[in-house]
Design a protein around this nucleic acid. Sequence first.
RNA 1: GGUCCAGUAGCUCAGUUGGAUAGAGCAACAGCCUUCUAAGCUGUGGGUCACAGGUUCGAUUCCUGUCUGGAUCACCA
Length: 597
Amino acid sequence: MNLQENILSTLSKAFNELFNVELGAEIFNLQYTRERIKGDFTLNVFPLLRFTKKSVDESTQELGEYVKANLDYVANFNIIKGFLNFEIEQNYWLKFANLEGNNENYGYVESNTDSENIMIEYSSPNTNKPLHLGHIRNNLLGFSVAEIVKASGKNVVKVNLVNDRGIHICKSMLAWQKWGNGATPESENKKGDKLVGDYYVLFDKKYKEEIAELEKTGLSEDVAKKSTKLLAEAQEMLRKWESSDNEVVSLWKTMNEWVYKGFDETYKKLGVDFDKIYYESETYKLGKSIVLKGLEDTILEKQEDGSIWADLTEDGLDKKILLRSDGTSVYMTQDIGTAHQRFSEYDISKHVYVVGNEQNYHFQVLKLVLKKLGHNWSDDIFHLSYGMVELPEGKMKSREGTVVDADDLIAEMINTAKEKSEELGKLEGYSNEEKEKVYKTIAMGALKYFILKVDPKKSMMFNPNESIDFNGNTGPFIQYTYARINSILRKANSQDINILDDFNESINLSDKESSILKNIYRFPEIIQEAAAAYSPALLSTYIYNLVKEYNQFYHDFYILGEENQDLKMFRLRLSKLTANTIKSAMQLLGIDVPERM
RNA sequence: GGUCCAGUAGCUCAGUUGGAUAGAGCAACAGCCUUCUAAGCUGUGGGUCACAGGUUCGAUUCCUGUCUGGAUCACCA
């Protein structure tokens, strides 16, 4: 039992004995005591007055006395306007520090074969579009959430779904065929994803030109859009692709390979990976057959033109097309197939889709259609919907070129980290290779933290003209603190001090020191909370606060320079604990910490 | 138009079941390197928590309405 559980059960007993009421632990509002107020845990007594049937002051006083008398480590209590603050004896924190002193996995819960299996899909790139800042948010979120859920004691399967089929793919293939002159990534000296992306943009340009031409002949915009030769050719290509036309399929394979190679490079830079990759091209047929089965079972309906629909109007949604009149699949069709395949392949209790909030409606429909088709596991689908990354001038639009390219941004960050680091000149003695590694660590730390510290649900602002900060509430600030602690630990080591020896617990803790210990004590809870909320932001806020406190401590107290041996040993231990916690928390954010910087 | 999400300091963001004096960072200004890394620490200024009602001992938090911004309602993915 941890502290809170002990206090809660003692409170239950208190109500039983003092006020003659049976209350479960869940009724008590027990929180960590606010900063600047004496105490460690705070009970809000107001909501309990209806059970005590006594005045606020009396109730609070009696509860405080009871808990103090009946719980060992409650050293004292104080009362402020109906808030009962329990003060935990410092010995408890000191024991805790000795106990967890060198537990590298402190806070993590190991999973086993009985643990829940959770599937997390993220990234899900479109093979026409090179990865940009929006995708970076997706990838970082997905990876971090997976790490956090894993650390909370679950088995995690990270999956990626590649959007490798559909009319959009045919657009870039067609453009390459028509105007590519056989260009390859090698011949153009360009990353494959970028090259293919260029042809997608080119298609759109030519398509718009053709629409404009048609409009000049007197057609309305809507009619013109549907009458272009280009679109007709793309549609024809999709039909050929779905009927496995050799030429089309072989071009498709070639161009996809280019893209994958490019994506892999970017994934590697971002430090994200997957346990399994699914391809739409391999699941859409399953989706198709499920849809046809649904039609047979009269759950779905067919229109005169042959297209197949789900009628969701009873549930407050619209009608949704699941198969086109020419028999080809839409996005929803393959998603039905993919979900089906995954739930039959794996025994998963939850399937998390990390997908932008622009697709909220899509997932609402997906869950509902699956449910209608009789798949109860549709309830286990969770759409982790995150907000857009906005630029000062508005949304990023691939086709309009207003995107912040992932590779460019990463390169720029590394460059900034390098400049800054060289300016400070703290890496003397490192080889160039080691230095480059540190630059990358810092650059990615800055970028990742910048993105992950924002609540996933909220849209976030990124101003490309203001480079991402390295001071304040940033990744490098946290990394710096880690490097600083390490510097001390290295020195201690070279003085033959064994940090892992138990320290003498008969010392007096300063407020700052016990505050740091309390913070570290909370780490396991934070992991659980972050996992339950699928929110890396909770972890970044946590680690920032811890680091800030440690830096204050570092500034105000000597560690190695402390003359009292017991205090010195304790402070080294405290530093070690902090470093471990920083490293663990940052790991869950997918951020590395450097030994020096 | 329907549905959903958001609005907290000049800017970027915290604020988890309603609770104590609403917090950080950046930017601005003023300080701190003759012992452990100044990517740090300390201080000052900066708020009608969009607005108006309601619920109650108590609302940034819950409810209703209004305003503003965004997303979505495709035979795109």
